[in-house]
Amino acid sequence: MKNIFFLLLGLCVGAMTSNASTEAAEANLRSTIDQVLVVTKKGKGGQSMANQLTPILVRHMCFESMTRRAVGPGWRQFTPEQKAEATKLFSKLIIRNYSKKFTPGELAEIEFLKPSSPGAGKVEIPTKTVYKGSRYNITYRLEDRGSWLITDILAEGISFVANYRAQFDVLVRKGGAVAVIASLKQSLERT
């Protein structure tokens, strides 16, 4: 009887903690998206949009883990300097790529769906987004790293990090950290 009581108590506490996590993560995501939409509504396109979004994204995205996971196990071969440089370059690429998804003045309607928690400190928040007349399924992955940070974005099931992982993997096998950094620089130089 006692065991059942503790089991139920444990389940209740677990469920409450999980709910609190998903609520905190969702509140953080909503706030981030609100800030992004203010910029995209009033801001200009191109590099100007990226510049305005940078401070928001730096606060709410975990670029370090995104870079590490995009590179994959080859990350171990990187020196601390190479890790720092790759993270800096990849962050710029993420911000530029993300900024290009928006057209100044266009409004997005976002419906937040039921979040889930695939593991401790991790929350996935699916959304239905209507943008420029088209509907998109966009899922945000967040992790608790002191505050809730975005670690991946999936548009129609396509993971941003997994997509770059497929590309980095070939580079890591071909030329290690040097090839990855050179390719990132080359990509950033392209307009």
Binding site: N97, K100, E156, I158, N163
Partner: peptide
């Protein structure tokens, strides 16, 4: 454009994107 513009290797990016998209659609 979204799949290839900021890609390091546009071919791999489009290939990975296509397979992920179809996987997600099937699920």
């Amino acid at each position: 454009d979204m799949a290839t513009k900021d890609a390091l290797d546009p071919y791999i990016s489009a290939r990975s994107g296509y397979i992920q998209y179809r996987e997600a659609a099937s699920e």
